[in-house]
Amino acid sequence: MNEKEYYIPDGTYWPIIGSIGISILLIGFANQMHGVSWGSSAMVLGFAITVFMLFGWLGQVVNESVNGQYNQQVDRSFRWGMSWFIFSEVMFFAAFFGALFYARMLSVPWLGGADNNIFTPDLWNGFSATWQQVAFTTPGTTLQSGTAISIPTKLVEATGLPALNTILLLLSGVTLTLAHHALRSDNRNQVIGWLVATITLGVAFLGFQVMEYGHAYADGLKLTSGIYGSTFYMLTGFHGFHVTLGVIMLTVILFRVQKGHFSANNHFAFEGVAWYWHFVDVVWLGLFVFVYWV
């Protein structure tokens, strides 16, 4: 398309399909949580519609891009869109990191009697204000909602699986950078090789993460283990979800590389996904440092 023209797309059905899909998914989820029988089927249906929409919509965009309907300006709009979308993701994680820091630095010490809360320990007999075991350690006590508190018998170690996973993700950052380098010098075979390596490392990470969850769960660390269990699972869980998304996107990119969609100068989709992957990687580093170590 001419550099001097504006790109204005035709009308499209994808957004309304997406809205319907997501709404069915969420309504199904809410009903499923409330024990309604059709809840999970609605979730599956909504999820299927949403995935259909994503592939249809993005597929159309890819086709238009390959057919040369876009120009530099459209490319820049996509860049702005992707960048600020990722920034909104950063803020989403910030909320959970904020909760982690607040609990760690303020609410747990306060519950333990720090500052002017000296009476709290007497009022809260049996409450353990230690970090990984913040809850009532008296057996049989429950959360306000009535859920039994699960007290972990073993503690989450920073070495071992988490350290291994950190290495895996960091290496995936290296291989992805190498793939990027290869793409910038138009060496398609190397790009494919490094991308496959990145995807493999990502999948390995996910596998070990599942193992790690299995160990933690067996040791009694659950979502219901008080604030440590809550922040641990929510942060690592959302992170794992993003790694999964990243692996899917990298796979799509791999296929597009094979089809020869990118050139050394024109590979926004690759760059967007690459930055996303680096972002997910950095989130993990933050997790590793703040959840497991410091």
């Binding site: 230690t130 990984q132 503690l155 070495t159 170590w293």
Partner: peptide
């Protein structure tokens, strides 16, 4: 020089 969360925990217990 630093101790993992878990070690801090052990000491408290």
């Amino acid at each position: 020089w630093i101790e993992p969360n878990a070690v801090i925990m052990d000491a408290t217990i």
